[in-house]
Write a protein that binds this DNA or RNA. Sequence first.
DNA 1: CGCTGCTTTGAACAACTTCAACTTCTGTGG
DNA 2: CCACAGAAGTTGAAGTTGTTCAAAGCAGCG
Lengths: 251, 251
Amino acid sequence: MSQNINKDIVTLNNIKIACSSCSLHDLCLPLGLHGDDLKRLDTIVSRTHPIKKNDAIFRQGDHFEAFYAIRSGSIKTVTIANDGSEQITGFHLPGEIVGMDAITGSCHPCSAIALETTSYCAIPFHELECLAAKLPSLQHQLLSIMSQEISHDANLLMLLGKKTADERLASLLLSLSNRYSQRGFSATEFNLSMSRNDIANYLGLAVETVSRLFTRFQDKGFIKVDGKFVQLLAMDELKGSVIECHRHKIG
Amino acid sequence: MSQNINKDIVTLNNIKIACSSCSLHDLCLPLGLHGDDLKRLDTIVSRTHPIKKNDAIFRQGDHFEAFYAIRSGSIKTVTIANDGSEQITGFHLPGEIVGMDAITGSCHPCSAIALETTSYCAIPFHELECLAAKLPSLQHQLLSIMSQEISHDANLLMLLGKKTADERLASLLLSLSNRYSQRGFSATEFNLSMSRNDIANYLGLAVETVSRLFTRFQDKGFIKVDGKFVQLLAMDELKGSVIECHRHKIG
DNA sequence: CGCTGCTTTGAACAACTTCAACTTCTGTGG
DNA sequence: CCACAGAAGTTGAAGTTGTTCAAAGCAGCG
């Protein structure tokens, strides 16, 4: 948490930070762009003031105008079914882009809600599209990022379709660990910005189950939990537990 | 089944069918393209001979070269985890495009396997990208189709994360119904080209459960099943059962 | 005709959920 | 700064849902 808060302060002081000098540019859309191309992208991207926890970047049904790149903090994307039930379809960390599911329908099919104080960049889609037509490397990067999103979703499908409760939580923790470390944070300890409820919803489990899983993982010595702060003590065992629980499904 | 087989014969006789005269062109990539633009796309698309059941369009790990549009028949996309377990991530009908998850990694993260005799078009990605840079409407259609894929996956996530077994099967049947009717087939009766095993895998259930569900739905009078042939007798009840089972999750 | 593989059915079992009670945390106002 | 109310998280016990195991029925194919 403290790390993220510090990060916010830094970015607050640099609202006008450009893509070229953004520490996330090799995780984000600018990847592979250089020189003038990067400057051209810069001109269409707009930075906003940070939003508070529970505020929305966009809400389900909002007209689609732009992609949004998380700069600091974190968000969840949530879909509300016609019957009122909610499904969290993803947690998004700095450098990740949301809104890519909205091109077809011209309306956002999900809401993007801040899990903590969060700042982001807006990339107007129409302008992006025009620019991409002129810059092949941007077009490629755009397609590539969308492709990545598709294959990421397929992994998640695998998770929800096949895995036991243990595997699901282990997968989430490992995924966060991976992504935090890519962003220069520790791979073995971090704060969960989402509530147990959010985790349960995302993993398709009951809150109570998630709570019990944290306890069990701790009892086994795989992790250490203190509220939202988590330490991964035995990464290999975590990875192993994902595979182990799978064994009975083989063949 | 018979309908699909007939369809194959027709397409066999017309291997050189162009996008412009393809009955699927308003479900597929050419949507929104006209005149010369469509002809330009035509020049890069190559049609292949049909493949047999269980043959692959591409296999997981294959180098990514092209998108593939299903022209007739049907396929499943399957990911194999490192532990050997398989997850079916989608069933694809004529007019649908597969391979879009491979751009990032340059290798296909899943295999595309024919569920029956299937013919398809290959759209070389490099050429497509170059063409898209020249044709804004093609670029837009490309992004739009990928966006659609992302939001489709999000729906599936919802399905696997939240829904009961009944809801899952009902959702699949309704989705197939929708897609068949879009393609000019009956919305209320069709042949399932996939096995019960495939369905179970896709829905994250045991085969036995799927089998029991079919029986239960039939007992309730929602559907009539005879092997692979299914008739949807009470669409509203099916839709209703999806919502009804959801009620307890609200609030 | 008899095999093989797919599907169905039954019964026991396990995993996860639900319900309920209790504890801990958080933020707000006195 | 503390007290308190409400939210979030944890824990136990009972209940469901779906899985697993086992076996029998069917269909396609040599």
